[in-house]
Design a protein around this nucleic acid. Structure first.
Lengths: 253, 253
DNA sequence: CGACGGCTTGAGGTAAGTCAATCCACGTGG
DNA sequence: CCACGTGGATTGACTTACCTCAAGCCGTCG
């Protein structure tokens, strides 16, 4: 009987018998089962192996500080839970079993082997992809959990950090040449409503968006208004290196 | 002067001098510039090289059939446009310059080299990651473009395909043991509203969700109600192989 | 100067949320 | 075998965040 991962992958590629055998073996070798409502991987976990769902149903989810839960994806047999292992230090969300769920654990050895053979460019590609996904997930949270004002605050705060990281922010302001229409298309709002919320943020003294430039007046309050939690950007390196990034984005995290 | 990609990546890792040199070279070797409002990569394009933004501002976006635009991400210097090259045949969205934007093109040679050295498992990981991202992007479109009924229809239709692909759907029905509360957490709706919309879908004769089981009564109409476009799942192989998948999900695409 | 793209403001409409009661299926213990 | 508790589904009445439509404004560019 074919395993669900191979079935999925065969939708787009043909495997050599060797590849298929490897995949089949990985998918059946080291199994583990979780009861319903149990976390397969908890938010913040550092995982050294990859989990492949082989039966059951799980969710990729995040519990917000206010207790609300955002489900970002349903995981069914054949789905991988935590490819982020490759490059990111820790999970920025949880994987939770909805029903009894069993996973195949792709052994740490295989993973570290792949990691060590990885060139600088490949690693760069993975990191870029993984953080992009994390940003996409945050955008889903946006819509589920944040209202219009919070969403805009979040976008502007995130962009400040991203421009800081590449050295293109001057202090707390940066050039961001978009129209309010485009802000609307990005946040799922109308330009009319974007306009009104920008006024609110301005009168609150949090930030100004004018002349294609964002000026953050009160970073702390803006962060609060955005209900911003920096972990999803994965900018934190090990503690003894932290001073290096402090110069760029550290105080925003 | 450090290039933005290296600056970004150094937030999480240290490079060997050799790696850094390679990255710096790739980021400056083959440059190309696009005027504002031009597509850097069009929806449906098949791309053989990777685009790295080095200056300017672009969006990752999708134009819907009704003409509305959903911006899924802003791309700033240091961001990669199309890592999907690795495994997916074609782009399922566009990259558009907002202002004049220049990109470094990572040459096709480098990319194919990486591709050929890729083992079956690595390829599987990439494909899984890339389609997961595509599903995440579709979820963003959900919130920007679809109302509650369409969103639920979309979720149920997508799950039907996914269960079909792994051989776990019987005809047009599948077991989906979630509560209406959980459907709400996934779609960004309240359980109350989920309930009402499920009733609508039922009375319209499109589908029934009862006893933890989804039964699609009218797949064609459900697909229409969901405004479902299958390209983001990347299940289409080359034309001469298409008959192979017809048995599983083909008629749904 | 007029045209145009983008911003601003106002008046009304609607999809979805909130709150709260009721109902139903079930499992469990007396 | 029935009483009860519990988690989930259902329904109704009311509220609200955001949308739509539409007009007016403002700066810029040909």
């Amino acid at each position: 009987m074919a395993n669900p991962l191979t079935m999925k992958l065969e939708q787009f590629t043909s495997f050599s018998p060797g590849d298929r055998e490897t995949l089949d073996r990985l998918a059946s070798e080291k199994l583990n089962t979780w009861a319903a409502k149990r976390d397969i991987i908890a938010d913040g976990d550092h995982v050294g192996q990859i989990h492949l769902v082989t039966s059951g149903l799980a969710t990729r989810n995040k519990i917000m500080p206010d207790g609300k839960r955002q489900i970002m994806a349903f995981l069914i047999p054949g789905d991988l839970c935590d490819v982020e292992v490759f490059v990111l230090a820790r999970m920025d969300h949880a994987i939770t079993a909805l029903t009894e769920t069993t996973c195949a654990l792709i052994p740490a050895g295989t993973v570290t082997e792949l990691l060590t053979n990885m060139g600088g460019l490949t690693k760069a590609l993975w990191w870029s992809t993984m953080t992009d996904s994390a940003v996409l997930r945050e955008r889903i949270i946006d819509h589920g959990q944040r209202d219009a004002r919070e969403r805009l605050a979040h976008l502007f705060y995130e962009m400040l950090i991203r421009y800081r990281v590449i050295g293109m922010a001057q202090d707390n302001s940066y050039s961001f040449p978009v129209t309010q229409e485009e802000l609307g298309d990005a946040t799922g709002l109308t330009s009319v409503h974007v306009n009104r919320m920008l006024q609110v943020l301005r009168t609150e003294g949090l930030m100004i968006f004018s002349g294609r430039t964002v000026t953050v007046l009160d970073p702390v309050s803006l962060k609060q208004a955005a209900r911003f939690s920096p972990d999803y950007l994965h900018l934190q390196r090990s503690a003894n290196e932290r001073h290096e990034i402090a110069a760029r984005a550290g105080d925003l995290l």
